[in-house]
Design a protein around this nucleic acid. Structure first.
Lengths: 156, 156
DNA sequence: CGTACATAGTTTACATGTCAATTATCGGCA
DNA sequence: TGCCGATAATTGACATGTAAACTATGTACG
């Protein structure tokens, strides 16, 4: 691995910089590894990660949600949601229901089919969580959560 | 927020489970926040995150790399690389060079144009790193790196 | 030599994330 | 009533991630 002159200068001038970059890079890489594994699991059960995410939100809420509310909870940019809901609806996992009071709003309701699909996934998902986190103790996991929340704090 | 009966049972049976899920969820959410910000910065300079990633790898290496080597370093699934390199080549950021010894191999070489574009981004990227990590002390960042590496360890 | 297998890249098909622009509806206010 | 700006959702164009199938080239082995 060649270390560029620029990187050497950075290390000299601001030793702190390296620590920041290393932590953020570690975070991104770790997330990649984890997301890939969950993605494979979801696909084995006929769902994409984004679809699973939306269905989990709807199940957790226990009642239909407006499309924009879903978009805001998934960090998905608004236009992406439309096609996502389209495909979920085609697959029979959700229904669109237009709001009577405000006809601009469209509620999305989860179906029994989708609830069944999610139930199938609950155990495998829990297993994967265990497997992925097996290298850390409960204390370390708590500390990791604390640091991540503190890191995320100023971003809100 | 409704807590499902299933979740309650899980909490009863395996209090450890909640800690794992919380840590992994925190990781994914934090990564989303960070990636969104870097993505915006790259796009302001005419690059997508994936393109920036590849150009950084080529600059760091200092010499042309085979396409599959790049794919392995970016965790990109192979087919995705082709179009990515296509667009980088169209934009004048890389050149394809066929290997003489093994004509199956195609080397990708970074151009001066791309190096200039990367140089423009070095300061803003460093600034963003600082800004994102400002909530944590150097010690906390080191601890975060340690935990993430330990978490990632068994996945390799 | 020549067949079988392995490797490097590409193509195709589809789901997603992103931005800019558009449509439908609401609410307020003259 | 009727226009105006705001809000909810969609559409269109493009880049990316993913899986399966295909092409071209290389290598091993009989």
């Amino acid at each position: 691995m060649t270390t560029s002159r620029l990187q050497q200068e950075i290390k000299k001038k601001r030793p702190f910089e390296a620590v920041e970059q290393e932590a953020l890079l570690n975070l991104v890489r770790t997330n990649d590894q984890i997301s890939i594994r969950f993605g494979r699991l979801f696909r084995e059960h006929g769902l994409t990660p984004a679809q699973y995410n939306i269905l989990r939100i709807l199940r957790g809420e226990g009642k239909p949600l407006p499309i924009l509310e879903i978009a805001s909870r998934t960090l998905t940019v608004v236009p992406g949601i439309t096609g996502l809901i389209d495909r979920l609806e085609q697959a029979g996992y959700v229904n669109r229901v237009r709001c009577e009071k405000d006809r601009r709003v469209i509620y999305v309701a989860i179906t029994e089919t989708a609830l069944g699909r999610l139930a199938e996934l609950d155990e495998p998902v829990a297993d994967l969580h265990r497997q992925l986190a097996c290298g850390l103790t409960a204390g370390e996991l708590k500390e990791l959560s604390r640091l991540l929340e503190k890191l995320r704090g100023p971003l809100a």
